[in-house]
Computed example of a mutant assay.
Amino acid sequence: MINKYLLLCFFLLSMVSCTSNDAEIPLSDNLLIGSWVNPIYDGETTTFKRASALPDKDYGISFKLNGVLVERSSGWCGTPPLSFFDYTGQWQLEDSLILISQEHLYPNNYAWRIISLTKTELVVKRELTEQEIDYRDLMDLFDDLYELKVNFTCNNASNWTYTAYGSKACGGPQGYIAYPKELEAAFLQKVNAYTEAERAYNLKWEIISTCDVPREPIGIECLNGYPVLKY
């Protein structure tokens, strides 16, 4: 009878010990859950350290169980004195890829590839998402049309003209661009290619823009060899 009593006490003690240890284990077996601070940038990788909470006056990012992400940042400017704000978003994990979506960023979807992850350290590498790849392709098209005219010096404004380019998500062009008349056929072809590509990009990624209409220039003048639109 005594042996049975001792066995029962040992069993109950074991249960209490297990409960005590479990209390120290995070609510999720996903080590990513929690706050990460003190980013150290080394080439293409960034190393974070785990913290109990986000810092008041420094960068940090927090991954929550419900898929909500909180980023504490001073924004893009970074001019002292810095003011830090919380930006929320969504995150999900696909294998070793962290997919992040935030409304205040553009492009508003980006991804981090997990290089290593322990209880105390997170090392990630920025990886281009499909949207960012599409955006780079779009910018390559714009560079193509810009490079076409860059070697032409503006000495006589009568040799230059302008055209609308691009497609705002709300409709209408992004703006106007000057080009030499002798390049008209080739230049307009590239402008049309860029405009159609931007229209397709806006539809694919549901881009939002303002609906104001850019003012059309009234002419061109040459300043220091460059064409300047007159309004």
Rank of each mutant, 00 (worst) to 15 (best):
I2H: 15
N3G: 15
L8F: 14
C9V: 10
L13V: 07
T19D: 15
D22H: 14
A23M: 13
E24Q: 07
I25D: 09
L27K: 11
L27T: 10
L31W: 03
L31V: 10
S35E: 08
S35K: 09
V37T: 10
P39M: 04
I40S: 06
Y41N: 11
Y41F: 11
T47W: 02
T47Y: 02
K49Y: 07
A51G: 09
A53L: 10
L54S: 03
G60D: 04
G60E: 00
F63S: 02
K64C: 12
N66K: 08
V68Y: 10
V68I: 14
R72F: 08
W76M: 15
W76V: 14
P80Q: 05
F85W: 13
T88D: 12
T88M: 10
T88C: 10
G89W: 05
Q92L: 05
D95T: 04
S96D: 15
L97P: 07
L97H: 07
L97T: 14
L97N: 06
L99A: 09
Q102A: 05
E103A: 14
P107K: 01
N108M: 03
N109W: 03
N109F: 02
Y110H: 09
W112T: 03
R113P: 08
L117H: 02
T120Y: 09
T120R: 09
V124C: 04
E127Q: 04
L128V: 13
I133K: 12
D134G: 06
D134A: 09
L138T: 06
L138P: 01
D140C: 13
L141N: 07
E147A: 15
L148E: 00
K149Q: 08
F152S: 11
C154H: 01
T163A: 14
T163V: 13
T163C: 12
G166C: 04
K168W: 04
A169P: 10
C170A: 13
G172S: 04
G175H: 07
Y176S: 03
Y176G: 03
Y176T: 04
A178K: 01
A178Q: 03
Y179F: 15
K181H: 10
E184F: 10
F187D: 00
Q189W: 11
V191R: 00
A193C: 06
A197M: 06
R199C: 06
K204P: 07
I208V: 14
S209T: 14
T210I: 08
P214F: 09
G219D: 01
I220G: 02
I220V: 09
C222S: 12
C222V: 08
C222Q: 02
C222M: 11
L223I: 13
N224H: 14
N224T: 11
G225Q: 05
Y231Q: 13
